[in-house]
């Protein structure tokens, strides 16, 4: 019943990616407002407000600590919401994929293109935070630019699971489970707002299983001018999540679309 073949990477995925980019460009103003407005609120409200009481965390001013965590988490959030809501919209109510499948495009092109697109949107939102942080003086090292490709990898890593969930969902409501049980806990426990080391031991080992912790473990030092440790290990975890979830997303979307 299931088609277990490996995803085929074809040029068609660029067409799918490009279609989404064109839509995004049409809605540029509201998109940018969201991309820049949200981090401003977080950084000003939490970073400066809370920062006054917290002072320094892990040797960093709180604003800098928070900003470097948000670079990672915003790619996660953005890629996830695109992979859940937008992919579902194109798959079910809008039947965009049905239209694409009447052209030379195939299901594998759609999944690969959507993965790329979700990660691209993640990259956009992380870059916006980086820029805002720079303007606020929270981040000033040139090596922080390396966070941009990393935010793309982080996006891939969360796009796959989100598309998987969208592929077997029957309605938008179903996404509440994923957001409440998976996404929000990661946002809160994986070190965006405080160091993971403040958690109890068992919780620390649990958190190490989650990809956001690994994204932050590389992105935070890079953004703040420190040298990241165990880079290969962290990147491998992210890459593994991206690849395995890409494979599963392809298998599951095939099942949904090819009947």
């Amino acid at each position: 019943m299931l088609d277990w073949r490996l995803p085929r990477m074809r040029h068609g995925m660029i067409h799918v990616w490009r279609r989404n980019l064109l839509v995004w460009r049409k809605l540029l103003v509201p998109s940018l407002l969201l991309n820049f407005g949200e981090p401003f609120l977080y950084l000003l409200g939490l970073g400066l407000g809370l920062g006054r009481f917290v002072g320094e965390l892990g040797g960093l001013p709180y604003l800098t600590f928070l900003a470097s965590g948000l670079i990672a988490s915003s790619s996660m959030n953005t890629a996830t919401f695109e992979g859940l809501f937008s992919v579902y919209t194109r798959m079910v109510p809008q039947q965009t994929y049905e239209g694409m499948l009447a052209t030379p495009l195939e299901v594998d092109d759609i999944v690969a293109g959507e993965m790329l697109w979700c990660a691209t949107k993640g990259l956009f939102s992380s870059s916006a935070i980086l820029l805002v942080s720079f303007l606020l003086g929270a981040i000033s090292h040139w090596q922080a630019l390396l966070c941009i490709p990393l935010s793309f990898l982080t996006g891939l890593c969360f796009a796959g699971p989100a598309i998987m969930v969208a592929s077997f969902s029957r309605s938008y409501d179903f996404f509440n489970y994923y957001v409440t049980l998976v996404l929000t806990p990661m946002f809160i426990f994986c070190g965006v707002f405080y160091p993971v080391t403040t958690l109890p031991d068992f919780a620390q080992s649990l958190v190490q299983l989650l990809p956001l912790s690994h994204a932050i473990a590389v992105i935070r030092p890079l953004a703040t001018g420190q040298e990241p440790t165990q880079v290969i290990a962290h990147l491998s975890v992210l890459l593994a999540f991206a690849l395995v979830s890409f494979y599963w997303a392809t298998v599951l979307v095939r099942r949904r679309l090819v009947q």
Partner: peptide, 22 residues
């Protein structure tokens, strides 16, 4: 059932669709 792309105009629909054929 029509599955035109609601995010685009009439002209853009044709342009984007042509893109799928390279």
């Amino acid at each position: 059932l029509d599955n035109l792309d609601p995010d685009f105009t009439v002209m853009e629909n044709l342009k984007v669709y042509a893109g799928f054929f390279n």
